[in-house]
Write a protein that binds this DNA or RNA. Structure first.
Length: 269
DNA sequence: ATGACTTGCTGTGCAAGA
């Protein structure tokens, strides 16, 4: 089962590039982020005509996640539990029925968290957008712990807006005060990993120079000034079935690209 | 470097992204 994550930065803007990549990469299931569309505005029929099952969780203008699948999907749920007042569309789950195993797939768009305000001691304050990021990650931690209690394989795929280590940024010094790389953000990410999840890419690849996002500004792509923030986290049983992992970096150089590129795994499931 | 670029909005410049 080939499972991908792709922050497309707007479904309308990627209406040609996304089908092009789907045809070339031929994943079985894809978690999409930043569809920037309400459910009724997503071009569902177009993807269904191409053979995809389509499940969306959108909102007007920003955010929004979706799952496209060639395999059957069951028990689709929308929204991250833990705060009924949270109206941002950043979490969707579905059980993907593989040839050998079922996989509980979570598609997520973790809050960016910028800008960050700092107190007189230079410590980041857990308020505003940064406070929302940290509280959202605490809710994700609780959901991730619950998922591990189930019998299904678990894959949590998406735009985490977390640079896990300095080697995951071309210029780590530029991100020291940024919500994507602050120690508190990375610690919250590690707390989720410490439940028993493995980050798929680092099971297979070591060292610097692997990125999944390049800013549109200042020639970031041409200078390879990137960061690695799109991840797939695997439960222990899922990690045991990992066969391959890849970042489709060449997508960033194609026509009218998103600022993110797809990341995918192959599971023996 | 307060920049840059891209997206969606019911806009005519702005917020948000990372």
């Amino acid at each position: 089962m080939k499972i991908a994550t792709f922050n497309i930065n707007g479904i309308k803007a990627r209406i040609e590039a996304l089908p092009h990549w789907l045809e070339a990469a031929r994943p079985d299931v894809v978690a999409l982020q930043e569809i920037k569309s309400v459910d009724e505005g997503f071009p569902r029929e177009m993807f269904e005509d191409l053979g995809w099952r389509v499940e969306t969780h959108g909102q007007k203008g920003f955010n929004g996640v979706a799952i496209l699948s060639r395999l059957p999907l069951e028990d689709v749920t929308r929204g991250l539990p833990g705060d009924e007042s949270d109206e941002q569309a950043r979490w969707i789950e579905a059980t993907v029925i593989g040839e050998k195993r079922a996989v509980r797939l979570c598609g997520l768009y973790l809050p960016n968290g910028n800008p960050v305000s700092f107190d007189a001691d230079g410590q980041p304050e857990a308020v505003g957008k940064y406070g929302y990021k940290l509280s959202w990650m605490a809710r994700m931690h609780a959901r991730a712990a619950d998922l591990l209690q189930g019998e299904e394989l678990v894959v949590m795929a998406g735009d985490y807006n977390i640079i896990p280590q300095a080697e995951d940024a071309a210029k780590p010094e530029a991100w020291r005060q940024d919500a994507l790389f602050l120690p508190e953000s990375r610690a919250a990410f590690r707390r989720i990993l410490n439940l028993g999840f493995s980050e798929a890419f680092r099971l297979r690849e070591t060292g610097p120079g692997h990125y999944s996002f390049w800013d549109y500004q200042a020639g970031a792509w041409e200078r390879n000034n990137g960061i690695r923030i799109d991840h797939l986290l695997l439960s222990p049983q899922a990690a045991d079935l990992l066969q391959d992992v890849r970042i489709d970096r060449e997508v960033r150089g194609q026509e009218k690209p998103s600022d993110h590129v797809p990341v995918w795994i192959e599971l023996d499931a």
